[in-house]
Structures are given as structure tokens and as C-alpha cells.
Amino acid sequence: MAFDPAILVQYWPLFLQGAWLTIQISVQAFLLGYTLGIAVALLGLMPGRLPRLAAASYVEVLRAIPFIIILFVIYYGLPFSGLRLPAPLVGTVALGLFASAYYAEIVRAGILALPRGQFESARAIGMSPLQAMRHIVGPQVARAIVPPSTNMTLTMIKESAVLSSITVPELTYQGLVVQGNTFAPFEVFAAVTLIYWGITLAVAGAAHRLERRLGVAQARSVSRNRLAASYLLLERESAR
């Protein structure tokens, strides 16, 4: 079987369009999802049983159902209320909704992990609650939530492939279209795969640089005796 790059050359505009739409949708879904996630997290931290229950249910339900079903429910359910929205918009909203449940958990955990004393010592020297949030609580919570948020964002970008099933012309959909025209699955999926891989590597790289700038503690390699290391370490320790 011959690998025929000519196919890719002929169809690369479609791949590019698809990739670009994937990126756009991911960015918009991220913004929507994180805003919603912060709101739900704050709701869950309010006093009283009702807000906490509401927030917890939101998170549990959205995390238990496969994204493809969430997507279909919204896409096929919307016409019921008379609303006919374009697929890319529906897809973006669904993706954002899905991600918001995970972001909410991440933000909530980040806030709860901060010792109350941090806020108190800021107030005790006379800072207003807003000043305490801005100078002391906010920066520390931000540091805590960046790594898990990065993880979730990468997951969300990959999950965007599912939007192809409601005909959103993102990268996967374009791949299926080209594959349908050319019957060259190897070349097509090789290209699509590499593009996704490239996108996630780029995002992960940018996130690590952000983490370093914020001063997020980098995991330090633990030195251990060589016998135990021969079992427990899965890579050779490189001299740093």
C-alpha cells in the first residue's frame, strides 16, 4: 500500500479550515466554560444547603454523562423550544457546559485548599476583603488551579472532535469528508492526528510556560536508593 501525500496536498485547505474552527471553538468554549465554572464553584461555597446541593448536582450530572449525549440532547432538544441555532454555536455551548462542571470542581478545590489564615492575616493588617482577595487569596488560588485546568482544557480540546457528529465542520469532520472523497484513510487520519497532536503539544507547552511564570512549584525528582529505583522509577534520572 502506497502512502500518497498528493492527497494531503490537494486537500490541505480543508484541514486548515477544520483546524482553525477547532481552535476557535475551543477558545470560546474555554471562556464560556471557565466563567460558568467559577460561578458554579462560588455557588457551591455559599452558606446553606440549597446552593451547595445545586452546585454538586450540576457537577455530578454533567460529569456522569458522555459528552456526545450532552451534545445530542442540546442539539436535538433545542428545536422543541422553537430555537434553531447553527451547529457550531450549539457545539460550542455544549462543549463549554461540559467543561464547566470540571472547572467548577477545580476552582472549588483550589479555594478550599487555601488556609483561612491567609485571608485573616490580610484582614488583620487592615486590608479590605477586596484587597485581601486581590493581593493574597487570588494569586495563590490562581497558582493552584492552573495545572489541573490545563489538563481539563486539553481534554476539552480533544472532546471537540465529537462535534463532528452534528456536522460541525471542525477538523475531524473535515477528515471524514476527505476520507469519504478519497478513500485514503491512512493519509487522511495521519494528517488529522498530527494536527491534533500539534495543537495539544502547543497548548501544553504554553501552559507550562505560564505555570513557570506564575511560580507554580515544579515537581522535583526524588532521589532514592538505586535498588528501589530499579523497580519504582520508570525513567532514568537525568542529571539536572
Partner: peptide, 23 residues
């Protein structure tokens, strides 16, 4: 590992379903 973690599950499923027959 980088590949599996960096690409969508749906695409991985497509690889097994569409590409393997081609080889």
C-alpha cells in the same frame, strides 16, 4: 503516551476502525 494523551479518543477509535483495514 504523548500520542494517546494528545489526540482525541474518537480519532483513536477511527484509526482502529478505518485505518487498520487499509493496512
Amino acid at each position: 503516551i504523548s500520542f494517546i494523551r494528545g489526540t482525541p479518543l474518537l480519532i483513536q477509535i477511527f484509526l482502529f476502525y478505518y485505518v487498520l483495514p487499509a493496512i
